[in-house]
């Protein structure tokens, strides 16, 4: 990984840099598996190696792939980096050693999660029980973060489009995509399976790695695959922008409403125990619902982000296209 990181520093070709960053994400995901963090690895693989690489590639097609050679202030940068790095190394000197079981973090809070979560929540995947119940509010915050990003991207990139433009773009796209007939058919067959897999991940989060976030990303990936092969305007016909925005909002609301219902039932915010007559059943219901909330928002926002990037790109190509026409 150090090699990859240094290669990224040296490279000038942005395309290679982005690819290497993807590899870096994938490597860290495999490191997470080695460190027993399967849930995290799953997410990092989907996000670090998948979504973020994809987005960066889309942006590079618009901005050009070469980095200018000028590198300014490398010295001061080096200074800052050395000072911070030195401070960190200094800090590590008193750390508990890697892997040692008597470190404070393993002895203060986490034993309760490991020993009691089965009785208190009844879900084998401890990560899920901590995420969705003990620290449900953090996860709620996370959903709101992703929602914010979606709205932010919308605010910056969404374009009011005219009909005739749309049709013209569609015609350019069709000519582009017709060549990939085989891939299209394969993809059409694949997409239902991806959806199915997303649903499996969604429900499986209680027992193994997985859950709303990962399911949402996979679901969005299927849509993105479809968009890439069939063109944005076709995809827009299938999934309407207003509708997808609504889904994103509903996801957040669903999550929040679980909390509000528990308030109404006399518990604290996100106290799932009061959701059903039996505490364990209540916990199950609560986790199920919020995972759906997470899934909805994440899938919707990922699609929003991708659509808007791709939409900008089309507009950009379209403008270039018409400029070329004018000049010739």
């Amino acid at each position: 990984m150090v090699v990859v990181a240094i290669a990224i520093i040296r490279m000038k070709d942005l395309f290679a840099v982005v690819m290497l960053a993807g590899i870096y994400g994938l490597l860290s995901a495999s490191f997470f598996v080695a460190m027993d963090a399967v849930d995290v690895a799953f997410t990092e693989a989907a996000v670090g190696a998948g979504i973020s690489t994809l987005l960066m590639l889309v942006v590079i097609t618009m901005t050009g792939r070469d980095e200018k050679a000028t590198r300014h202030k490398p010295l001061s940068a080096l200074l800052i980096v050395t000072v911070t790095g030195g401070l960190l190394i200094y800090g590590t000197l008193d750390m508990p050693y890697f892997g040692s079981a008597d470190a404070p973090i393993h002895n203060h809070i986490s034993p309760r999660y490991i020993n009691d979560s089965m009785q208190e929540i009844g879900v084998p995947n401890i990560v899920t029980s901590v995420l969705a119940s003990y620290r449900a509010f953090d996860t709620f915050g996370e959903v709101v973060v992703i929602f914010t990003a979606g709205i932010g991207v919308l605010a910056m990139l969404s374009v009011g489009r005219r009909k005739e433009d749309d049709e013209e773009i569609a015609s350019i796209n069709d000519s582009m995509h017709e060549q990939h007939l085989v891939i299209r058919i394969v993809a059409k067959m694949l997409i239902p399976f991806i959806f199915l897999f997303a649903l499996y991940v969604q429900f499986h989060g209680d027992f193994g790695p997985g859950g709303g976030f990962q399911a949402g990303v996979i679901f969005a990936a299927a849509i993105i695959l479809y968009t890439m092969l069939f063109g944005l305007s076709t995809a827009r016909k299938v999934i309407n922008q207003t509708f997808i925005r609504l889904i994103a909002a509903i996801g957040v609301l669903l999550y929040g409403c679980v909390g509000i219902v528990s308030l109404a039932n006399g518990g604290n915010f996100f106290d799932y125990n009061v959701l059903a007559s039996d505490a364990i059943a209540g916990q199950h219901l609560g986790i199920l619902l919020i995972e759906w909330g997470v899934g909805c928002t994440v899938a919707a926002v990922m699609i929003i982000i991708f659509f808007n990037f791709a939409g900008r790109r089309e507009l950009y190509q379209h403008n270039k296209h018409s400029q070329n026409k004018e000049s010739s």
């Binding site: 809070i109 999660y113 620290r135 953090d138 604290n268 996100f270 106290d271 799932y272």
Partner: peptide, 13 residues
């Protein structure tokens, strides 16, 4: 002090 999710402090938020 308000315990979110009804979980006692250092375990919950």
């Amino acid at each position: 002090s308000y315990e979110l999710g009804g979980w006692q402090a250092p375990w919950g938020i």
